[in-house]
């Protein structure tokens, strides 16, 4: 079971969390003005990197906040967790 460091509550067991998919995909300001290609890109297309991945988690059974994490998908080790809205930490391969 993963041990995930909530930016608010500290290290907590995975049981308290839900995964929220790739991070840093902002909903377009005015979706109606987007081309179908751009909307498709936003809606469906996601990176699936081998290595560091910025992803959303929610401390569902804790403070209930969404936050972001950098996790290495090959080792399951977390490099960093940070609050929603904060930029992806520098360091580590993209």
């Amino acid at each position: 079971m993963l041990l995930i460091t909530c930016p608010y509550c500290g290290p907590r067991p995975e049981l308290e969390f839900s995964h929220g998919g790739e991070a840093h995909i902002a909903r377009p300001e005015k979706p109606s003005e987007l081309s179908i290609e751009d909307w498709t890109q936003y809606l469906y297309l996601r990176a699936n990197p081998k290595g560091l991945h910025a992803e959303r988690w929610r401390h569902l059974h804790g403070c209930a906040r969404f936050f972001n994490a950098l996790r290495d998908t090959t080792t399951d080790q977390f490099v960093a967790t940070y609050k929603a809205g904060e930029p992806r930490p520098t360091g580590g391969a993209a």
Partner: peptide, 10 residues
């Protein structure tokens, strides 16, 4: 959960 997602992150 869906509402919280939009509210907290968007």
């Amino acid at each position: 959960g869906m509402m919280e997602d939009y509210l907290q992150t968007e």
